[in-house]
């Protein structure tokens, strides 16, 4: 129970919250880089996934993306980003972390969006064309709304995964919540380690539960979200 006391002591110390390496700024960094990473990944992945899905071509890309996302360890992506980032002069910290997170977020976004658009009943799309809708109108009024649950599943999975991996950014000197854990390990400071672990876990778990609640609210017709 000593560790628990250490944790409480660490959290009860005001200076641990403020300052350039405090809890507040690191939480902000952690959240900010995650959100930016998912946004950048969305800009890259969604248009391609939507177009391919609309044409129902490239299903194998979606499957490959999903498998690849699983097979490549997130630490490996981060570790690969570092030497490249240094080589091209972006240095340590936020740059390699952001690159890694973007790469990590693309597979779930792409695979889910593609599946969503491609799984819209072709007869429905034909019916829409038969009513005189243009391809763009059919996409916007029919396929996108119907694939919204899938798209949101993709965003949720990507964001939760990115929030978890952003903690590993500490290994390449990114100052997020993972830094408390890594520093705690190095300094044998259980209070610090536990603080980082607790905040990282709370952030990931609450992101998951908030997003799934939002998803159920926005697409109430879907019984079971994945």
């Amino acid at each position: 129970m000593n560790s628990l006391k250490d944790l409480i002591d660490f959290l009860a110390t005001w200076s641990n919250w403020t300052g350039p390496n405090g809890i507040l700024i690191r939480t902000f960094n952690h959240l900010a880089i995650s959100v930016v990473a998912v946004l950048v990944a969305s800009v890259i992945a969604l248009p391609i996934a939507i177009v391919l899905g609309h044409r129902r071509k490239g299903g194998f890309v979606a499957v490959a993306a999903a498998n690849l996302g699983r097979a490549i360890p997130s630490l490996a992506i981060l570790a690969l980003a570092l030497p490249l980032s240094i080589k091209y002069g972006f240095g340590l910290g936020a740059a390699p972390t952001l690159v890694a997170l973007v790469i990590l977020a693309i597979p779930p976004l792409f695979a889910n969006t593609y599946t969503g658009v491609a799984s819209v009943e072709p007869a429905l799309v034909d019916a829409a064309r038969g009513q005189g809708l243009t391809e763009w109108q059919a996409l916007r009024q029919l396929e996108l709304p119907l694939s919204a649950p899938f798209l949101m599943t993709g965003v949720r999975i990507a964001l939760v995964q990115v929030l978890a991996t952003a903690a590993l950014g500490a290994l390449v000197a990114f100052s997020g919540l993972g830094s408390f854990i890594i520093e705690g390990f190095a300094q044998f400071d259980d209070g610090k380690t536990l603080t980082g672990a607790l905040l990282t876990a709370v952030l990931a778990v609450s992101a998951e539960s908030v997003l799934s609640r939002v998803q159920r609210r926005l697409t109430p017709w879907v019984d079971e979200y994945q």
Binding site: S3, D6, I181, D190, T193, L194, A201
Partner: peptide
């Protein structure tokens, strides 16, 4: 599901103070 949802680094963070490295 809850165990799965805890980020790996955080889980190590929870365990190290108890079971060491």
């Amino acid at each position: 599901g809850a165990l799965y949802g805890i980020p790996s680094l955080a889980l190590f963070g929870f365990l190290v103070p108890i079971t060491g490295a």
